[in-house]
């Protein structure tokens, strides 16, 4: 199949940004900067890959930023609690990781079950759980910050900062997630079902697809990825608070949209999402490196890009129909 303009558009924009960045500042292409950009993209990126499935199936999840903060909070509490018994070792950290990942799956299940079983709009459900998770982490931290024990933090640190040469673990995890996501969307029955449901859930139902179950699984997959990204996020700062992961949900949704996945569902592009994530973090990075435009205008430029991406895709679609 030949690549169409929908896929190429964001890619061209990404390449243009890289060229622009390189022209503006020679430090842009330095390995340290690239590692930095990619590693910071990884959290949103992994979440955005999960979000691609949810949106493609015709859903939405606004709770992921709060969920990440909440998972980071309970993972830290679990590790601190296990420390006296298990000591300062990987066993304790594995417990924290397990809590984050299982908690993520459970939170995704909660969202998905409310949407598919109780038949409440995804927007409403996840707006509600967004507030709940955010409030819970603030309450657990008693309004302040939950900090991981200092010794454990030192042990855990390499999970974010370490890696294979310049390629740190978050980058590896992001890449693996992207490859797996792309494979699932393109080559598995689940991916096919997700696209079918988002395209027309009645047709899916009349094709013997268990629509509720597939939708539920998309939210659980997203929850799992939020958990995984939390596992990588905690060693970065070693703490969680009420302001952790703020606006991550919107960045993830924006990346999905920029990447060419239709917000109404039916057409999922995992590679596009990856490109979308990179575009968003490159804009941020370029503004910080070059003093052409104030970094305070970052949000405005990202906003323009999001609207532009959607407008361009829509025009192409009507052109197709003629």
């Amino acid at each position: 199949m030949k690549p169409d303009l929908h896929t190429l558009g964001p890619l061209i924009a990404l390449i243009a940004l890289i060229v622009l960045g390189a022209l503006l500042n020679s430090a842009f292409l330095a390995p340290a900067n690239i590692t930095n950009v990619l590693a910071r993209s990884a959290f949103i990126g992994m979440i955005a890959v999960g979000m691609t499935f949810v949106i493609t199936a015709g859903g939405l999840d606004l709770s992921v930023g709060s969920m990440a903060a909440f998972l980071a909070g309970i993972a830290i509490i679990a590790m601190n609690a296990a420390l006296p018994g298990l000591g300062e070792n990987w066993g304790t950290i594995l417990i924290g990781m397990g809590v984050a990942i299982l908690g993520g799956i459970a939170a995704g299940f909660l969202n998905g079950a409310l949407i598919t079983k109780a038949r409440i709009e995804p927007f409403i459900v996840t707006l509600g759980t967004m507030g709940i998770f955010r409030s819970l982490v603030t309450w657990l931290a008693d309004g302040g910050t939950l900090s991981l024990d200092y010794g454990l933090r030192t042990l855990y640190r390499p999970v974010y900062y370490g890696g294979i040469g310049w390629v740190t673990w978050p980058i590896i995890a992001f890449a693996l997630t992207a490859f797996a996501g792309e494979w699932i969307m393109r080559h598995s029955r689940f991916g096919r079902h997700v696209e079918a449901i988002g395209s027309n859930d009645r047709v899916a139902r009349y094709s013997a697809i268990d629509v509720g179950r597939v939708r539920l699984l998309t939210y659980m997959l997203l929850g799992l990825l939020v958990g995984l990204s939390t596992v990588l996020y905690v060693p970065r700062l070693g703490s969680a608070s009420g302001s952790t992961g703020v606006l991550w949900e919107l960045e993830a949704i924006a990346a999905v949209i920029i990447g060419g996945t239709a917000l109404k569902g039916g057409r999922g592009r995992v590679w596009g999402t990856v490109v979308g994530v990179l575009i968003l973090s490159l804009i941020d990075n370029i503004l910080n490196l070059a003093d052409l435009v104030s970094p305070y205008l970052n949000g405005a430029i990202q906003g323009v890009i999001i609207v532009l991406a959607v407008v361009l895709q829509r025009e192409k679609r009507t052109a197709d129909e003629r």
Partner: peptide, 24 residues
């Protein structure tokens, strides 16, 4: 189904995807 456009086929998807959807 009697409702070809709303319950039978995914109009925005390819022929193959439609053909095999119920028997993946």
């Amino acid at each position: 189904t009697e409702d070809r456009k709303e319950a039978g086929l995914l109009l925005d998807k390819g022929l193959t995807q439609n053909l095999t959807l119920a028997d993946l």
